[in-house]
Design a protein around this nucleic acid. Structure first.
Length: 973
RNA sequence: GCCCGGGUGGCGAAAUUGGUAGACGCAGCAGACUCAAAAUCUGCCGCCUUCACCGGUGUGUCGGUUCGAGUCCGACCCCGGGCACCA
């Protein structure tokens, strides 16, 4: 019998399915291990070889942990809401639910082909109403909570209402004037709800959003890349719209601090902290100089009391440079611009504002030219009374800090360039540190021309300046974040409906008993009117009667509305990241109908011990799920506030594209080496028609009709293709389907080869060459168990006998297996799967050399191998148990899944003597066998007696001996 | 521009704390078995020199620390990824 992987693999897959081998119980008595993959979006293209890389790694780790006695949760599911399915529906009219279902089936079949140990009974799909019921429920928890700044945590909104009722507004108000308890009670329902909306963790508000016309929806900041949509690359513009948001900014500090408690790569932590973008400094008020020619201030001027005594607030991280301020710049979008501009400058300012408005986000980012205009107004430096011109320029962003900055050209590159461009005189406060040619952002300089800060080193001056500012009452210490609140609504169909009903312009939560609020079936997926989603077109859905939450119901009734008729459902849907922000919790308790996840169950499974996925989710999914976890923790629904204890980022597998070169104007193709002799065009050719770089010309001719009669200019009788590394994608014809490889070599070979390619974290182009080597290894392993006793004939394979004996193992054999146990264990623990595969190869080579066919050696080897190549390991193990039953295996077939993990015995790996390299002055000269327990004096004597050492020493006396324990000896002369 | 990674044979890559660089695999070369092929097995495989042994040299470049550097330090070059007017 030879290694017939296809029979073996289908047999064992059926067996696992039938016996529910991977069913994971919530068994609280066993130690747990939670291993999670980022679940896929089920696209129509199916899997390519890049996808399973992380899945294989996590599968190996899961199986390993299981053998080590852990109760392992290793689930899989689908992130099945999302734009592509809806775009496809728009084009073809097929319901997204239908295409999604089909795609998921394809994915599952492909995944099962590779032999993963998922418990499919725990599968989740974000578009399943039984799942999104709880997404909506969590949304309601966020809606019904606010962030208590003092306690630094989320609390029920009821606490806040009680506070308003008893003592009035909080010390720090959010976008509204302070009020007393009595005033609060006098406010009408609308006013009260509007104020509360400023506090809710999930809230609705007007704001500048990223609007993508082509996709017909708004996008979150992380979904916009270089001014275009991440998906599809469509232009994105800023637009003021009513939108739902998550108040993630309140968690900025905790999201930052939490990074210290988790095991993520430094690069990942860095990306997240850059995105959060914490900076500390101060806000400072600059009085505005009264100006005779000032234009009349409009009625709703933000400058209280007109220009008289008005001031402008700037944000700076460098209050120590306050004496170096040579001008102030305001973002053009700020209203205040119109109040301060002088009559003479009005025309210039208005012209500039028109120019700024005409520029798209894209242009602004693409060409960063220096532009701006003087407003005609001056501010007064609060410390030395200097008059400072106020400019506007698009390099200052309205949305960050106060939208106004104090410009210190000697210390800031942008300010310097601006000053240079507009010939604004520069004050030097850092002496020799400033050369007049470029700004110097040092913090080490001793300050000059800086009033009371003179003589101080900048670092120290920082504190002194802030104190002075606060004492003078002209500003405060201030921390700012780059991160914005996350846009949470999409004007699309294929997403979770919001459990919100609008009545009289007030958003009311619907009652939990109404969940899930399901998506209606629709005929058309075109957007509704006024930038609304497709749901707005379905009147009977929008107006359907739903029960509101008890408090809301009372409020609505008291305002005299009929509950059945009143109001309309929110027509936006939630974004793709809603469902993925908490799916790891649902896996723990996926069938629970009364709770998103039972608290006892989540206390048991707790944090994800190992999370595997790509870096592309660094600032999206990973931040959102961390925030949701923190909010659920604050509200007491779970017992941990970081979801992922350890994160491993698998590298991207790129495609290795192949090209043929068509001679221009002819149906003739020239081989790579000769292509420069002709005018040619490079054309992608399917990698599966190319062996290495040799084109299979017959297959190519059959590929497309137009190539059937093509001519070829060959070199050395071959057509050599060109190559390039690109993203793996259908349109480059460089995708390799795992199904094909599993069919040709088997899943075990495929799994081990993917791991053998290199470290999981590393990105690399796919190369199928080399898979033969891994396949050969498995065949060689097979031959340790089976021996051909009759040569194969033309009509069939040869007969083979199972040749494993019960003989006792020799020390040499024991050494091999114990070395292997040690290596595989440490490699698996530290995620070095490529070296682990090498370890197996070495072991099999050595055992073949030793002609070892002993159960005592091969049984542990199979158990070690089971996580990597589960099918062949199960097959050989079953056969072994049949031929050599033991107490453990008696009474029927025992699966390798429950086999006792082999124990590594140190005595077989450590030796009594060792061959030491002997170096002289660091150069290797010879080797000697020395007992490990020899003293340094013994070694010294032995080495000095050695003939070769004597020769190299000549007459010289050794200065010293260096002993590297169990490694080598070095003689210094 | 700034911040992370990373540069090791023809190729993918190994190398716990500085201690025999290139394990393992692919490709290549030579040989065994075969009428032949496939499969399998054996040997060689960084570069220079040599019939061979020996020797020299070698981990992007230059320099440093050390008895000893792929590994540590300094300067530079190249590649990959992330961020990019956040004051």
């Amino acid at each position: 019998m030879e290694y017939n992987f296809s029979d073996i693999e289908s047999k064992w897959r059926a067996h696992w399915k039938q016996t529910k081998a991977y069913k994971t119980p919530n068994d609280f008595n066993k130690p747990k291990c939670y291993v999670l993959d980022m679940f896929p979006y089920p696209s129509g293209a199916g899997l390519h070889v890049g996808h399973p890389l992380g899945y294989i790694a996590s599968d190996i780790y899961s199986r390993y942990k299981r053998l080590k006695g852990f109760n392992v949760l290793h689930p899989m599911g689908f992130d099945s809401f999302g734009l592509p399915a809806e775009q496809y529906a728009l084009d073809t009219g097929q319901h997204p639910a239908v295409t999604t279902k089909k795609n998921i089936e394809t994915f599952k079949a492909q995944l099962d082909n590779i032999g993963f140990c998922y418990d499919w009974e725990r599968e989740v799909q974000t578009s399943d109403p039984n799942y999104y019921k709880w997404t909506q429920w969590i949304f309601l928890q966020l809606f019904n909570s606010y962030f208590d700044k003092k306690g630094n945590k989320a609390k029920p909104i009821g606490n806040l209402i009680q506070q308003f009722n008893t003592v009035g507004s909080l010390p720090v108000t959010m976008n509204h004037a302070p009020f007393t308890a009595t005033e609060w009670k006098s406010f009408d329902e609308k006013k009260q709800q509007d104020i509360l909306m400023n506090y809710r963790l999930a809230f609705c508000g007007y704001g500048e959003v990223n609007w993508c016309e082509a996709l017909g929806t708004v996008l979150a900041n992380d979904e916009v890349v270089n001014g275009v949509s991440e998906r599809g690359g469509h232009p994105v513009v800023k637009k003021k719209l009513r939108q739902w948001y998550l108040r993630i900014t309140e968690y900025a500090d905790r999201l930052l601090q939490g990074l210290d408690t988790v095991d993520f790569s430094d690069a990942m932590k860095e990306m997240q902290s850059n995105w959060i973008g914490k900076s500390s400094g101060a806000e400072i008020d600059f009085a505005i100089k009264k100006h005779s020619s000032q234009s009349k201030s409009s009625e709703n001027s933000p400058l209280e009391g007109g220009l008289e005594g008005a001031s402008l607030r700037v944000y700076t991280t460098r209050p120590d440079t306050i004496f170096g301020v040579d001008f102030i710049v305001i973002a053009p979008e700020l209203e205040v611009v119109h109040q301060i501009k002088s009559a003479e400058q009005t025309a210039a300012v208005d012209e500039y504002l028109a120019y700024v408005k005409s520029r798209s986000e894209r242009e602004r980012m693409a060409e960063k030219k220096i532009s701006g205009v003087f407003t005609g107004a001056y501010a007064i430096n609060p410390f030395d009374g200097r008059e400072i011109p106020i400019w506007i320029s698009e390099y200052v962003l309205a949305g960050y800090g106060t939208g106004a900055i104090m410009a210190v050209p000697c210390g800031d590159e942008r300010d310097f360039k601006f000053a240079q461009h507009f010939q604004i005189p520069i004050t030097n406060i850092i002496g020799a540190h400033f050369n007049g040619q470029e700004a110097n952002a040092t913090k080490e300089a001793t300050l000059e021309n800086s009033g009371f800060l003179n003589g101080l080193v900048m670092k120290e001056a920082m504190e002194v300046a802030i104190k002075a500012i606060e004492e003078k009452g002209i500003g405060t210490r201030k921390v700012n974040f780059k991160m914005r609140d996350a846009a949470f609504s999409r004007q699309r169909y294929w997403g979770e409906p919001f459990p919100i009903k609008w009545i009289n312009g007030i958003a009311y939560p619907i009652d939990e008993s109404e969940l899930p609020l399901t998506l209606p079936d629709v005929e058309k997926y075109t957007p509704g009117p006024d930038g609304q989603g497709p749901l707005a077109n379905i009147e009977n859905w929008v107006k359907q009667p739903v029960k509101l939450s008890k408090e809301s119901e009372a409020k609505v009734l008291s305002s005299g509305k009929d509950l059945g008729e009143a109001g309309t459902l929110e027509t936006n849907t939630m974004p793709g990241y809603a469902g993925s922000s908490w799916y790891f919790l649902r896996y723990m308790d996926p069938q629970n109908e009364n709770n998103f996840c039972d608290r006892k169950v989540s206390d048991y499974w707790n944090q994800v011990d190992l999370y595997i996925g790509g870096t592309e989710h660094a600032v999206g999914h990973l931040l959102y799920s961390r925030m949701w976890t923190k909010a659920l923790y604050d509200l007491g629904h779970i017992g941990f506030d970081e979801p992922f204890k350890r994160l491993v980022n698998q590298g991207m597998i790129q495609g290795s594209s192949r090209f043929v070169y068509r001679v221009q104007g002819e149906n003739k193709f020239v081989s790579f080496g000769l292509k420069n002799k002709y005018a040619h065009d490079a054309i992608h050719v399917d990698v599966n028609m190319v062996d290495g770089y040799d084109l299979n010309i017959e297959t190519f001719r059959n590929w497309r009709e137009e190539y059937a009669n093509a001519d070829f200019i060959l070199e050395d009788g071959k057509y050599i293709c060109g190559s390039e590394v690109e993203k793996m994608s259908k349109r480059y014809y460089n995708t390799v389907n795992p199904d094909d490889l599993c069919f040709k070599y088997g899943a075990d070979t495929f799994r081990m080869y993917e791991m053998f390619l290199g470290p999981v974290e590393m990105s690399k182009p796919w190369d199928t060459k080399g898979i033969e080597g891994v396949h050969r290894f498995l065949k060689k392993l097979w031959r340790l168990f089976y021996k051909e006793i009759k040569a194969p004939t033309s009509v069939g394979v040869g007969e083979a006998a199972f040749i494993v004996t019960a003989e006792e193992a020799t020390p040499a054999e024991l050494k091999v297996i114990h070395q292997t146990i040690k290596k595989i264990e440490s490699d698996t623990e530290r995620f070095s799967f490529n070296t682990a595969v090498s370890g197996f190869m070495i072991a099999v080579n050595e055992l073949t050399d030793l002609k070892c066919h002993k159960k005592a050696i091969l049984e542990p080897l199979l158990i070690l191998l089971a996580p990597y190549a589960p099918h062949i390991a199960e097959e050989l193990y079953a056969q072994l148990c049949k031929v050599h039953p033991t107490s453990h295996t008696e009474g029927g077939e025992v699966s390798i899944l429950d086999a006792p993990y082999p124990i590594f015995e140190a005595k077989y790996v450590t030796e009594t003597s060792k061959e030491y390299p002997i170096s002289i002055n660091g150069k290797l000269r010879t080797t000697m066998h020395i007992a490990l327990d020899a003293t340094e004096a013994d070694v010294k004597a032995l080495v000095l007696e050695n003939e070769i050492v004597k020769k190299w020493l000549a007459d010289k006396e050794p200065k010293k001996f260096i002993f590297v324990k169990n490694k080598m000896v070095n003689v210094v002369i």
